[in-house]
């Protein structure tokens, strides 16, 4: 198929628009050499970044005596398995359900956001149609509005839909984001050459086919970053799930919240729960960390 040939050559051009017109190329001369003080300062910041995570793990692998002990424990202990069982069996937290639900919610919303936002972003960047600019302005003006703050009307709506306590309540409202549309639109503007779309047209591709086999591959770098951000955001969603989901069918954040309400002094229990809620994100970080850094630094976030 002739469609694929231009696609591959697009991937071969220096990886999208952001690297090519990045102004840093104009900066001349070598960077200033880093001295030992620089390394010391950076190491301190690293320590500050990692310490709370490390401490979480230390307490989660020990009992509650690790907290009261003086001087405090420094190394992880051997009680992690016991704490895990205790946390999973805790009736207030419902952790197994919470973890499963969070995985479902974060994955579904991520796939959906990336798909629908790339469709809309492509249309707004590359297709000509009436009302395009007005719609784009509408998105830019509303993308900062937090739907999460509309707790009251959303609760009334969810009762009308009979979705209260149901996962649909925390998935469906978050299946698209204005930020995602805008971000992918900005990327498509430069990252998808008009010639490719034209030639697909000439070849007789429908618009959706053009999107699927040409635009989607070209948008991939930006879609990965959007995917990471969306996954993190929905994994972390707090105010709306605790408003609409009951303790029987929680997300992991709701589980943590319920533990925190009832077991404020059982730190081993809470820290193990906290570890559960953090580990999947750390996994995302290990796999996609570099892409995320690239996305933040290339201005993907700024749109």
């Amino acid at each position: 198929m002739s469609v694929y040939a231009p696609t591959r050559s697009a991937a071969g051009t220096p990886a999208g628009p952001r690297t090519t017109n990045r102004p840093r190329r104009s900066a001349s001369g070598p960077l200033r050499e880093a001295g030992p003080l620089t390394y010391i300062a950076l190491s301190l910041v690293l320590l500050f970044s990692a310490f709370p995570l490390y401490w979480m793990f230390v307490v989660a692998t020990r009992g509650n005596q690790a907290i009261a002990q003086r001087p405090p424990a420094v190394l992880p202990g051997g009680q992690f398995a016991g704490n895990v069982v205790r946390t999973l069996e805790n009736p207030a937290a419902n952790f197994t359900t919470g973890l499963l639900n969070s995985a479902i919610v974060a994955t579904t919303t991520t796939v959906s956001v990336v798909f629908f936002c790339s469709l809309a972003g492509f249309a707004l960047a590359k297709l000509r149609f009436r009302g395009r600019n007005a719609l784009l302005i509408g998105i830019v003006l509303t993308m900062m509005l937090p739907v999460q703050m509309a707790v009251v009307p959303m609760l009334i709506m969810m009762d009308a839909f009979d979705w209260r306590g149901d996962l649909r309540a925390v998935i469906v409202p978050f299946m698209v984001t204005g930020f995602g549309v805008f971000m992918l639109r900005q990327y498509a503007l430069q990252g998808v050459p008009d010639e490719l779309i034209e030639s697909a047209r000439v070849d007789g591709c429908s618009t959706f086919r053009t999107y699927w086999s040409i635009v989607l591959p070209a948008l991939r770098p930006a879609m990965v970053v959007l995917g990471i951000l969306t996954f993190m955001q929905n994994w972390n969603e707090f105010i709306w799930p605790i408003a609409v989901l009951g303790p029987d069918n929680p997300t992991v954040q709701v589980s943590i919240h319920n533990l925190n309400l009832g077991y404020t002094s059982d730190f081993a229990l809470m820290f193990t729960g906290a570890t559960f809620a953090t580990l999947p994100l750390l996994l995302v970080f290990v796999v996609f960390g570099r892409k995320l850094i690239g996305g933040i630094m290339d201005g993907a976030i700024k749109g």
Partner: peptide, 29 residues
Amino acid sequence: LNRQLRWRGFFRMGVILPYVTSIAAMAIV
């Protein structure tokens, strides 16, 4: 970080690490 650094990628990863955590979980810690 805008200097000639060794382990540049490592330091950047270390700096952004807290951003990729669960807010509620870290609030507990």
